[in-house]
């Protein structure tokens, strides 16, 4: 067991109708890093995140958050799902969605009050969405939806943030806002693990990376494992959009 690890995944196997989606995956993410999970479509990236969160049953394996099983450390973990996973025509506004992040801490019966509202407004400030607090959520752009989801995770005051494609299809302003938030989290010693698609931004945004294709191909510091050879193994020879993003001299 690695006491300094934010997330420790040992021998994780997840199967969907007897087809393995993740096979014997190990992953040890140190505390205070921005970690990317990359791999081709169907590699099991989203499955890995959902399995860590207990949303998908695992066939085998162990998951530790800050050294303890996930079920005991739930409060330390915040989740930013893909924004396409909900119906944005739901009758509610931005502030209300962000306050949902406090529902776990509130416990049963108690309603969100002034404290929760202030908490949510502070999170909206961080993602530059304060002026949208009263906005009906169906009137948000894709990037704004993503920032609302990020704010909802921020109010959880977690130590580990799991994000499913936070940069997927967002505008440049949102991308900058998210990067700023991620860096602030890292500066505070928190850990972020994000499923990421754009390989060319991996070295710029992240300092730790896991290359995944059902099995673990490689994992570690970007400078060490984000190599041409590892990417070729992960993507089966067809590496999209590399353009020299690979760490110089490491290959």
């Amino acid at each position: 067991m690695n006491a300094g690890a934010a997330i420790e995944v040992n021998d994780l196997t997840v199967a969907y109708r007897e087809q393995p989606v993740l096979w014997d995956v190990d992953m040890t993410v140190p505390q205070g890093v921005l970690a990317a999970i990359v791999g081709p479509n169907g590699a099991g990236k989203t499955t890995l995140i959902k399995a860590i969160l207990g949303l998908i049953p695992k066939a085998a394996g162990e998951i530790l958050i800050h050294g303890q099983p996930y079920a005991e450390q739930r409060r330390l973990v915040a989740y930013v799902p893909q924004r396409g996973s909900v119906d944005w025509d739901f009758p509610t506004n931005v502030l209300d969605v962000v306050m949902m992040g406090r529902y776990g801490a509130l416990g049963w019966v108690r309603r969100a009050g002034r404290r929760e509202r202030e908490h949510a407004m502070a999170a909206l400030e961080k993602v530059d969405m304060v002026s949208f607090a009263d906005r009906q959520i169906s009137q948000l752009s894709g990037g704004q939806q993503q920032r609302v989801f990020l704010a909802r995770a921020l109010v959880q005051d977690a130590r580990v943030y799991l994000m499913d494609e936070p940069f997927q299809g967002v505008d440049a302003k949102t991308e900058r806002a998210i990067v700023t938030v991620l860096q602030a989290l890292r500066a505070a010693g928190d850990t972020v693990v994000a499923v990421h698609h754009a390989l060319q931004t991996v070295p710029e945004y992240f300092d730790w990376v896991m290359l995944l294709n059902v099995r673990r191909v490689a994992a570690g510091a970007v400078a060490e494992v984000f190599t041409d050879e590892n990417l070729r193994t992960t993507y089966g020879g067809r590496v999209p959009f590399l353009n020299g993003a690979v760490v110089e001299g490491a290959a």
């Binding site: 959902k50 969160l53 973990v77 915040a78 989740y79 739901f90 949902m100 909802r152």
Partner: peptide, 16 residues
């Protein structure tokens, strides 16, 4: 709160 989570985003609710 729970019914609202269930209706809007049950997976997120489960992680809470």
């Amino acid at each position: 709160k729970e019914f609202k989570l269930l209706s809007f985003d049950p997976e997120f609710g489960a992680t809470l």
